[in-house]
């Protein structure tokens, strides 16, 4: 599981700003599955503020115990192995926040998400960011930044991609991109709304709302 940078700004109820952006995409009363839900901050928010039926999967047992102790419907499991057991169309929204780059089979996980849910909300750190490109170009070593802060031999982020890569995968798989935005490390919206190429250069995190085609 990627470690969240420590200096992310928190808003009301200690929810990460990027989770807040995700929450804004989810309508009242929706049925939501949050994969990699951590201690369940998003689930709790959606349950309380939007009367959603929100459930979660988390790989870190300490986080699961915390979430369950707060009365949340969270199970111990992971994206690669547990999604296959959910029924088709069981959820309105399936969320995967800052985890896609760390799963074993990202393409399969996305397929499962859009099989289980009518919508998928995916956020991931953008490997196309200029700082990464610059470091690799000038130093010839794997980038070491605020977001990509673990050495190559121990990073859990085994499948990094750029915003353009992700869009290409969505095209290949026939997913409709309903919304996308690039945000900076603190979850603030970055002003690259009009150009994917600029977003791919300057956006540190990407957030996509996808829909099953047809």
């Amino acid at each position: 599981m990627p470690e969240a940078p420590t200096d992310i700004r928190y808003v009301a109820k200690n929810m990460r700003l990027d989770l807040r952006l995700i929450a804004e995409m989810i309508p009242h009363g929706a049925k939501v599955l949050d994969i990699g839900c951590g201690d369940g901050a998003l689930i709790e928010h959606l349950t309380r503020e939007k009367q959603a039926d929100a459930r979660g999967i988390e790989i870190d047992m300490a986080e699961v115990t915390k979430a369950v102790s707060s009365g949340l419907a969270v199970i111990h499991g992971d994206a690669d192995n547990d999604l296959a057991f959910y029924p088709d169309g069981g959820f309105d929204y399936v969320v995967l926040s800052r985890t896609l780059q760390a799963v074993e089979r990202p393409r399969e996980v996305l397929r499962q998400m859009l099989r289980i849910g009518a919508h998928a909300i995916v956020s991931f750190p953008n490997f196309g960011h200029w700082e990464l490109r610059w470091r690799l170009l000038t130093r010839g070593r794997m980038p070491d930044t605020e977001t990509w802060n673990r050495p190559w031999y121990e990073t859990p982020n085994i499948h990094p991609c750029t915003i353009l890569d992700f869009i290409a995968l969505c095209e290949m798989e026939g997913y409709r991109v309903e919304k996308w935005l690039a945000v900076d490390e603190r979850g603030l919206k970055a002003p690259w709304r009009r150009s994917v190429r600029l977003a791919n250069l300057f956006g540190e995190q990407a957030l996509f709302l996808l829909r099953r085609a047809g």
Binding site: R55, M61, V68, L72, V74, I75, F85, Y86, P87
Partner: peptide, 11 residues
């Protein structure tokens, strides 16, 4: 999960 039930699970 397959039955669509609400589940919490800890080991």
């Amino acid at each position: 999960n397959a039955a669509g039930a609400s589940v919490s699970f800890v080991e």
